[in-house]
């Protein structure tokens, strides 16, 4: 398929674009490690007071922290992927170039963002996670099948993350300034993904609600699969379901945005 090769090239480009910024990557690894340490000691203090909070023991809580740091940039949980770039292109009208290309806008940016995510998983995610696993007691599985299922949940989480941010980026077609939308993305990402506190430690009924939202597909699902707390099949269905819904909505909004541009100008 010709278009598969096109999007593979776009994804490879996305990977290499981020790979060129080595100092930024090193700084990111350092930041995620430091944040991981801060959070780990906070969690340890919290779990000392409230053992088995959210059903996690201390090792599981520590594992959750390092996983969060590993996936923070990978899943652009608080933004920082393609969305600011796309919004800028919408604002300046450069999106016109993307539109006249014989390629689909959504697939183009999805491919590029998957390339970015893969780079950030390897370049920024692995090291803090290994650091955490070496210096702290963690709860990691020995079964390779679980690791394989975990890898799948990360792949699906990347698509869900893209789906959310694609919608945020498209809001630029209607908003004069996307700063607000990006800030909303940042706050919701931090809170609803469980970046600050695992979703299962949330008080009820808030806990039940947030686990149904798409953000729980980002960090909570891979974490629960890795620690054997969720049936992988359930996780796959949940994540894939949100991915399909978000991509479909993105497609509808993209259609409306394109019509608007095509009829009304940039």
């Amino acid at each position: 398929m010709g278009s598969a090769r096109l999007y593979a090239t776009v994804a490879a480009g996305g990977f290499r674009r981020y790979a060129t910024y080595r100092v930024a990557t090193a700084a990111g690894v350092f930041t995620n490690t430091v944040f991981g340490l801060i959070l780990v000691y906070t969690y340890l203090a919290l779990w000392d007071e409230r053992p088995h909070l959210g059903g996690y023991d201390q090792a599981q809580a520590v594992t959750y922290v390092w996983l969060g740091q590993a996936l923070f940039a990978t899943l652009a949980i608080q933004g920082g992927g393609f969305e600011t770039e796309l919004m800028e292109r919408i604002r300046t009208g450069e999106v016109a170039i993307d539109l006249y290309r014989p390629a689909d806008l959504q697939a183009w940016w999805l491919a590029g963002d998957l390339g970015r995510a893969l780079f950030q998983l390897l370049g920024r995610g692995v090291l803090p996670f290994v650091f955490g696993a070496l210096f702290f007691p963690t709860a990691l599985p020995h079964d390779p099948v679980i690791w394989a299922a975990f890898a799948v949940t990360i792949g699906l989480a990347m698509v869900v993350s893209f789906g959310i941010r694609f919608l945020v980026a498209l809001s630029g077609f209607w908003l004069m300034d996307g700063t607000g939308a990006v800030q909303v993305l940042m706050v919701t990402g931090m809170f609803f993904s469980g970046m600050a506190l695992p979703l299962n430690a949330f008080p009820q009924p808030l806990g039940d609600i947030v686990t149904l939202l798409p953000w729980s597909a980002l960090l909570q699902m891979p974490a629960d699969v890795l620690m054997g707390r969720t049936d992988p099949l359930f996780a796959f269905v949940f994540q894939a379901g949100w991915a399909v819904v978000l991509l479909a909505v993105g497609r509808l909004v993209q259609g409306a945005a394109t019509r608007r541009v095509v009829v009304q100008g940039g």
Partner: peptide, 15 residues
């Protein structure tokens, strides 16, 4: 961000 040749490889696939 990428070398010029990368953009050309992309055109190769796109068209």
């Amino acid at each position: 961000d990428l070398p010029l040749i990368d953009s050309y490889r992309l055109m190769h696939r796109m068209y």
